[in-house]
Amino acid sequence: MFTSLAQAGEEIDASIVKQAIVWLVTLQSGGASPTDERACEAWRAADSRHEQAWQRLHGLGQDFRASSNVLASPLLRSVLRNSERNNRRIVLKSLFGLALIGGTATVVRKQPAWQSAMAEHQTATGEQRRIVLADGTRILLNTATAIDVHFDDQLRLVILHRGEILIETAQDEAGRPFELATSNGTIRPIGTRFTVRHSDRPSSTAVAVLEGAVRVTPGQGNSVRINAGEQTHFTELAALAPFALDDSAAAWTDGVLVVERMRLADFVTELDRYRPGVLRCDPAVADLLVSGSFPLRDPDAVLALLAETLPLQVRTLTRYWATVTAAPQT
């Protein structure tokens, strides 16, 4: 049976519902860190309505998966009723992207796939590359990243189609503002150094500010200022309130992956970004915890180290298909 968001006569504010959706997107994006998880727990604990929205949206996914793809449940109608009319499409997109709604529906993107494939600057899986723009802005592209650069008389625009970048903005002699855009919204820096990661399954953007500040504006939400030492995640629907920056957020810029008590399943998902082919984790060992600093240039060496230090083995079908499983008992 579905549960209503207006249960017991108490409706949950639309802004809280949006925040809950962004947190769900963040934690199911495959790139969530322990810092993200702790921040979500703090958000849930800060207000009983936060926990209500979290539990009911989380339950929505379970209900959909068990209900033969029924779209018009009372709970979904209640979610939409608590959202402004022009945001209902965005709520549905977020739920589709989270696989909360079954079936074969496709989330509509603002930018078609060919734009990413034909982007001006790209990196292959496992590659990092530094570029300098015409205004002196420096960008480091991480693995499997694609960006376009558009400068005109009014604006310096960088579009991040996929992947992750570090930006060090330069002052512009013509006084043009700098803007970074993803399919979720825009980021305007204020003399800053920051990282941006854009994921499309589901669609979300993570921003971490190392120096200066930025202003994040979701496509359909309110702007949020993020200062040095803070980070946030946003979708087209809303941006989370800024929270403390994970110390290891920019470790990739030095070619290392730094983790502390990360679930093995999440660690393997992150390592998979840097390794050609398919890398998977057996659910039987998914909850083992991993800590340490690992070189990103050689993912196979990292896998070998895991097998030496944890009760694991790496099973390979081919060079491009590997699964981390439990080591056989002796």
Rank of each mutant, 00 (worst) to 15 (best):
L264G: 05
S33L: 02
H58T: 15
R197S: 04
A249P: 03
P299S: 08
P311N: 12
D247S: 06
A124G: 00
Q122F: 00
V278R: 15
E236A: 13
A39F: 02
A14S: 09
V132D: 00
Q329D: 15
S204E: 12
G219A: 11
Q128N: 01
T323C: 12
A301M: 07
P74T: 12
A32L: 06
V132M: 03
A250G: 04
G221S: 14
R129S: 06
R176V: 05
E270R: 04
L133S: 03
W321A: 10
L210F: 08
G212A: 05
R263P: 01
T323L: 09
D13R: 12
N142H: 07
A244E: 04
R162D: 00
G136K: 04
N142A: 11
Q62Y: 12
V258E: 15
Q115K: 03
R109F: 03
S223A: 15
Q154P: 11
T106M: 12
N227P: 03
V149P: 01
D298M: 05
Y320I: 00
S83M: 05
S68I: 06
S48H: 14
F194D: 02
L306C: 07
Q19F: 09
T217C: 11
R188K: 10
H233E: 00
L133R: 05
T182N: 04
L133F: 05
L288V: 01
R56W: 15
A39S: 11
T232L: 02
L141D: 09
V285M: 12
N69C: 10
Q52N: 02
A6S: 15
E173S: 14
E41Q: 04
V256E: 14
L271F: 08
R263T: 09
W321Q: 02
G103E: 14
E127W: 03
R319M: 00
E127Y: 02
S67T: 06
I190E: 06
P202V: 14
P112V: 02
T235H: 07
V158H: 00
V108L: 07
W23H: 10
A326V: 07
G229I: 04
R85I: 08
V290C: 13
R65F: 12
Q313F: 09
T186N: 04
G292Y: 12
D282Q: 05
D172Q: 01
D13E: 15
S4P: 12
L317Y: 13
L257E: 05
V256W: 13
P177V: 13
L60F: 07
E127T: 00
A66V: 12
A8D: 15
A14M: 08
L306V: 06
D148K: 00
H121I: 06
S223H: 08
